[in-house]
Design a protein around this nucleic acid. Structure first.
Lengths: 197, 197
DNA sequence: TTCGATCTACCTACTAGTTGGTAGTTAGGT
DNA sequence: ACCTAACTACCAACTAGTAGGTAGATCGAA
């Protein structure tokens, strides 16, 4: 038996760590916290992830990998740039509203970047570069097709869009009201997507 | 003598705490860290601020007070809504570029809100409410005068503007490039402010 | 004016609990 | 026999916070 190459305990640990990080950042949790919710002793967490840096580094690395595969698949299923942006924003609107992922791990970690171990900081930077690159491509394509209306270079519009998404996550958290995320993103999408009627 | 009602040691402590918080959030520093940079012993920090909650609560409270007086004064000197938005964005562009205040204290703390002591969380929420209220007023006025072009309700445009500012702070930090803040804000301001020529 | 009371700002020394991390052991599966 | 995954039992360093003391300024009253 044992088809799964590594027991799902490591995944449980990563899932717990992600929940703690989105709640309070890198310094907002300890190995003891994770051990409590996973149901192991502290030393057993070290068996799976020798150091806290290892744990968070693999967490963010996998987070980026999931984003890459997610965007690739999304682009295959929904090729039109306006729908891509809408789906991306809608994904986060849903995550925030049902509180399953109330904020982006990398947006949170980027805000405390100077205090992060360099290995983790590098991974966070890589996420930003990927996301901004992907958005730049989508917006570039939409502008070329005429399905998106842009007022600045695609790169700049992409950075502004990403910033609005991250800022809206923070506002939703500050107000304790998940619905404000969608409310904030609505005019941003509206400005990029020409009126249909 | 002794005109100053309280020695500036407390202010030194608050200034040090602010530097630490903008670097790594609420759990990113300790009383020992502050003692080191202020040149006191740990116990003396407790003499000025009995608990860490006291310290950060007064820090954020004063941060909000400064914002209120700053906006009031700004509105007296620069009454035109387009210039108000430009000046507000320009203020942060300068702060980020010269690294004096690389990110908004409350934007950072809001991102880790669930992990904050409730007294601090309440203060952070108050800041968001004030800032969004102020921006709503400015945008409302600009729209009524026709000096600002809005595509949604003033309240929504204000929230979107604030979110873009906070997100741009995080991006600038992630890229390690202060100039990206101004780059991101340029199209946002451009969309709100009708072309002059 | 001088005496003592009080206050401020700081100190040393300590506490109980937590931090990330290590050493060595054991049970079970292959 | 070996490996994995778990365990108990540590460790030094650090955490926020406390106890108690000291030097100096400020004060009101004799």
């Amino acid at each position: 038996m044992s088809m799964d190459k590594s027991s799902n305990t490591a995944d449980d640990i990563l899932a717990a760590a992600r929940r703690f990080i989105v709640a309070g950042g890198y310094n907002g949790f300890s190995y003891a916290d994770i051990a409590d919710v996973v149901g192991l002793r502290k030393a057993s967490i070290h068996h799976h992830f020798p150091s806290k840096v290892d744990l968070v580094q693999t967490l963010v690395k996998r987070y980026l990998e999931d984003a890459v595969t997610g965007m690739t698949e999304l682009e295959r299923n929904v090729p039109a740039p306006p729908q891509l942006l809408r789906t991306y924003a809608g994904f986060w609107a849903q995550c925030i509203e049902d509180a399953s992922r109330p904020i982006c791990v990398c947006a949170l970690l980027a805000s405390e970047l100077p205090a992060l171990p360099p290995e983790v900081a590098a991974e966070v930077r890589a996420y930003f570069q990927f996301l901004s690159g992907w958005l730049t491509g989508v917006i570039e394509r939409g502008a070329a097709q005429g399905t998106l209306t842009i007022a600045a270079a695609p790169r700049v519009e992409a950075e502004a869009f990403m910033a609005t998404v991250h800022g809206a996550m923070i506002s939703a958290r500050a107000y304790g009201d998940g619905s404000s995320f969608a409310m904030i993103l609505a005019p941003t999408l509206q400005k990029l997507i020409p009126a249909q009627d």
